[in-house]
Design a binder for these strands. Structure first.
Lengths: 282, 282
DNA sequence: TCCGGGCGATACCCGTCGGGTATCGCCCGC
DNA sequence: GCGGGCGATACCCGACGGGTATCGCCCGGA
């Protein structure tokens, strides 16, 4: 199976429409139809049900969509990592660290400083990404290492080391009645009638349904909290980012958040090992 | 990057010889040279140093060898799993469970029986494999789930659940002086002058150097122990396999062995989830 | 009921490229 | 100094990927 065939199939499987998929791939529709038919013939499997007026995935097609995406990511990672290894001709290439924008605001600078002080540290590029994107970045080679936050992020298929565990706090407008409390419970927070919890984007960029406002980053979120439109439960290290018009109150019964450093399991880079070792010693 | 190019490169990188690699691939040498040159041109990287009389990997080539193998495994897994999903047209396909031949002799039958008793269990094929092969089988799609034994096997890049932890025992000829002891220490075992520990094959099938005999499986091993040529330290569940002319003595200070059930992280199969859940309830 | 339009499949042509054979250039070792 | 091993180059051919034109099918509206 060639990667070209996989790219073609994934495009059709995602669009469920040969014409659109062909346009996305920059080719005409007939060669695409032919390529898919040939792939089906070679696999001995029907991947798509061409029910007139609608294309749907067969069970085998669903398997190939999932496995094919993973395989294409692995190929993309091989390409990217090889280019990077070549472009930094002498010595170790730099590292790319992925983390959610706004998260780990305390830990990250400490980690970067500590690592930079190591004898043979290499340059670390920080790649800020959206919610849940880190795993993808590691799998397709755009990043070498990432900071994840359990239990929100998935560490499936990654090697990890736990770094710190923090309690969560609820972030409120400074004048809110709960802001004076020493602590609150999750029930108190979710029961606030006029302050629905915000909605974060899903993997594909769409938002779940619900009453809360749609938010993309912490600056947006804090603005909306200050305006009295929402509240949020965040790890307590977010206190360092708080504006003076916001207050944070511990929520002891909210799940603790563990920051972990994660990397692709087959990595064998000296500099990555040094960075991880520095992180665990913080 | 096409999988054909990756296959070609991996072959050359493993053989470090264009002629042999071409023969292995079933093509002539000139097209192979051209394909590698084209891959290098497209990546903008020199992958192989053609020092006259010897081909060696550049650092970028070493990266592509490692990443390329992983990518080829992922493509092979996509192919195999799609075929299997298609061939079992109705309902869930069966599961393939990989385990080391001779290991988990107590746990495996219990697991298979318990799972078979589940309401919608599917057929489970057991694939006996060599030391350390399970990870590869899971990655390239030949197996869906495996039993691994920590700390010997690597679980890098796999999702796992721990099943049981056992102490280890030393297996001796029944008449050996230590056979009557209630327990021994690792120091006692490694100090036995005429009974060197056996040598197990490495990933690539070669054996490490050393005085002990080369063994491939437990039947071989027990035969050699009975002949007084070696001793072995094994998990205590191996007692059920012992022949009457062998004895087992606990070794409390040997590392405990944990059997884990492992599967590829992106699996989303109902029957796999049921098997894992059955295993954890044993 | 018929017609138009949307969509995937088919037919057919062309250019590129992958693969083969022959040969060269280089270097090492006898 | 020469023979042989090895990778690169030259050149040819056939296969296959991609394009355009068109068909067949089905649904929906008049």
């Amino acid at each position: 199976m060639e990667t070209r065939e996989l790219r073609y199939f994934v495009a059709v499987a995602e669009e469920l429409h040969f014409g659109r998929a062909a346009r996305r791939l920059g080719i005409a529709q007939p060669p695409l139809s032919r390529a898919i038919a040939q792939l089906e013939r070679r696999l001995g499997a029907t991947l798509l049900a061409r029910d007139s007026r609608a294309v749907t995935l067969t069970p085998a097609g669903a398997v190939l969509l999932r496995e094919g995406r993973a395989a294409l990511d692995a190929v993309a990672a091989a390409d990217r990592r090889t280019r990077r290894a070549a472009s930094t001709a002498a010595g170790e290439p730099g590292l790319v660290l992925a983390t959610k924008a706004g998260a780990s605001s305390e830990l990250l600078p400490k980690l970067l400083d500590a690592y930079a002080a190591e004898p043979d540290a290499v340059a670390v590029e920080v790649l800020l990404c959206g919610i849940g994107e880190q795993e993808r970045l590691l799998r397709d080679g755009r990043a070498d290492v990432a900071l994840l936050h359990l239990p929100f992020d998935s560490t499936a298929g990654l090697d990890t080391e736990e770094l710190v565990t923090e309690q969560q706090v609820v972030v409120l407008p400074a004048g809110h009645p709960l802001a004076g409390r020493a602590q609150v419970r999750t029930a108190d927070v979710s029961a606030l009638p006029d302050l629905p919890l915000p909605r974060w984007p899903r993997r594909d960029g769409s938002y779940p349904d619900g009453p809360g406002p749609e938010v993309r980053d912490h600056a947006q979120l804090f603005q909306l909290i200050a305006l009295g439109r929402t509240v949020a439960v965040l790890p307590e290290s977010c206190r360092t980012l708080l504006r003076p018009d916001l207050a944070a109150v511990p929520v002891p019964d909210a799940p603790a958040v563990t920051t972990v450093i994660a990397w692709p399991p087959h990595s064998r880079s000296r500099s990555l090992a040094a960075l991880v070792s520095t992180a665990t010693r913080l």
